[in-house]
Design a protein around this nucleic acid. Structure first.
Lengths: 369, 369
DNA sequence: TTGAAAGCGGTACCAA
DNA sequence: TTGGTACCGCTTTCAA
């Protein structure tokens, strides 16, 4: 009976070397695949491989890491709950892409966890030690990423990329971000091409980089195409203060034909908008076209025309960018912009015929009162 | 301006030693908290700590691991999808307990991922190397855990515990399992105490250790209490072949009063059972009591009397067991049984008055035809 | 009390 | 081509 004896000590390269009758460095070379640099005779390679098999030798990743600084382990750190429930669908696709790509390039992934503090926020540093250090580098994500930690990580020279734009004063952190700006501009272009000349922007009021990107793309395209921007007054940030709620005057102006297309930050803004327009006798898209700047799933009640965030691709590119940083340390790395797809739905059409711009219909910018 | 210069190299103990004017080993001792063994003067300790702070020194976990074999990293490996959707609720509580306990004893958690194969199954070994090796040990979970890998892991001497009982011929793997057997027996005892004398077992037909445990507890208690077991014929294993579907004859016998209480493997068996009993004019629990052998959430439509799996506690104990193995290598470790709670619901009552056992109501075991 | 030095298991340079 | 050897950063004897 050939029961494997409880191996007291894992075999090392030196054991392999002894069995094969060669030096330890020869073993290391064969394992490292350095057969080109220092051509080792077929026979020797064979003997070494046999010895490896016989002993069941496997390289020790810890020793490797200590020596080379790499162990083909990539960290993933989300600043939110470990096993998110509500946010799960949001992260899921990113993580899929990350995992997919990591595996393709033969890296393993480690998900860092532990809440780290009584406040329940997930931290990178605990007692001053960077927990990510066991991995060669890390991908960070999470809408509420702690910026101070990002700055420290960067200052410590730890290689990482962040999914989603994150600006930290005095620090250059590498981000992989959906190209919201171009996509928003493309959406405006499409509306302009269809004949819309007076459009509005319905903002979520959320003060975060990605929302700013979208708005910027919208505004530059509006200017470039010479359109008239008739948006409601910007609401203060914070939940519940959607601008659709806040500006009935603007809605009345829309009903009056002041605007023939609306670009909305998010689906949860578009739904009440459609309701309120309906209450004023307007139909989407016959009277007003609506585009949503955040991908909506196929199970959405309305098939909005929308911008689709390429989450999977963003995840994959985050891995590639990170590994690029590891391979070329010290090189400055530019942010990576990932193109978004604009998906056609059922909420965009040409403006209603004969909707000439009513003369002097309110301000170009700001509330339409 | 005190901008931290881009640190080319992380500070090491030797740097700290030089700055503090002591030897490297002194630094190591202070960090290791060995102040008792080799009493270092207050002043020296202070100088070293100051130097540590000034340099921002943090210990290198890789070097530590290479030297001591430990790095306070515990792996978690699930054999199912990385970011489970459907199963999430099932695993979630285990993971909560694992994380909670790991943090209490100051260990970090590493979730291993990567699908490992084109078959989509998650593997521990890839190209023969144990990917868990960067961690001191690991907690494994997943209903379809690959047994061959468990055997190999054990043979390799890698420390791990498995959540849920897993039998592998020729191997002793340490498991942390809910004590289904005792809980099932306690349930039978309670029914017997209430006066039930003829009860049935509704099996899921799933061929797995945990289900076998439950049935064993049921059967031993039935025998011990001298009850009559009138269960439907065991269905073949596989989805859709629930025994409630498969045995209308048994249902008729129940309606006839052959059985006053039913123990069901899972909630998805109990729901159709209740419907079919209702169709025959029976009410739960007035005519028939029903207990479910798998905890059901508070949002369940029916508040079943049920067995609650102490998932959180199981997770915590898995960590404690694992760390125990690490602290005392070589010691054989017994499986850990975690008591289950039996939760009172609204589906158990005393048997209907005057339900004397009908004489000769069918076989003690098997189909009640 | 403190320091020098030997590894932990590999990698990679430099000689032979 | 091959082997000897220094070193990665830390822990832990063993001497001083």
């Amino acid at each position: 009976m050939t029961t494997t004896p409880r191996r007291a000590r894992a075999p090392r390269q030196s054991d392999v070397a002894r069995l094969a009758g060669v030096s330890q460095s020869a073993v290391s070379r064969v394992i490292g695949g350095d057969t080109d640099a220092a051509r080792i005779p077929e026979a020797t390679v064979r003997r070494i491989q046999d010895a490896i098999k016989e002993l069941g030798y496997v390289p020790n990743p810890t020793a490797r890491k200590l020596r080379t600084g790499r162990n083909r382990l990539l960290g993933v750190h989300t600043f939110e709950a470990v096993f998110p429930r509500a946010r799960e669908d949001f992260y899921f696709e990113f993580l899929l892409g990350i995992e997919e790509r990591a595996e393709e390039i033969d890296h393993d992934l480690v998900l860092f966890t532990s809440t780290g503090g009584s406040d329940g926020r997930r931290r990178v540093y605990r007692d001053g030690v960077n927990r990510l250090n066991v991995a060669d580098g890390a991908v960070l994500l999470g809408v509420a990423a702690d910026r101070a930690e990002l700055a420290r990580l960067e200052a410590d020279g730890y290689p990482f990329v962040h999914i989603g734009r994150r600006e930290v004063p005095g620090t250059r952190i590498t981000c992989v971000v959906p190209d919201y700006e171009s996509a928003a501009a493309a959406i405006v272009d499409r509306l302009a091409d269809l004949g819309h000349t007076r459009i509005g922007y319905l903002s979520s009021g959320i003060d975060e980089e990605s929302y700013a990107d979208r708005r910027r793309g919208y505004e530059s395209a509006v200017a470039r195409r010479g359109l008239r921007d008739v948006s409601p007054a910007s609401p203060g940030p914070g939940p519940g203060s959607s601008s659709a709620d806040g500006d009935p005057a603007w809605l009345d102006a829309v009903a009056d034909g002041a605007v023939t297309a609306v670009v909305a930050d998010a689906e949860w803004l578009a739904n009440p908008l459609a309701e309120r327009l309906a209450a004023r006798g307007l139909t989407v898209p016959r009277d007003v076209s609506v585009v949503v700047l955040e991908g909506v799933g196929p199970e959405a009640p309305v098939r909005w025309d929308c911008l689709q965030i390429p989450r999977r691709e963003v995840g994959r590119l985050a891995i590639d960018t990170l590994v690029g940083m590891l391979d070329e340390p010290g090189q400055p790395v530019a942010d990576v912009l990932v193109p978004c797809v604009v998906v056609a739905g059922e909420t965009v059409a040409a403006p209603p015929a004969g909707t000439a711009p009513p003369a002097g219909t309110g301000p170009t910018k700001g509330s339409a009162e």
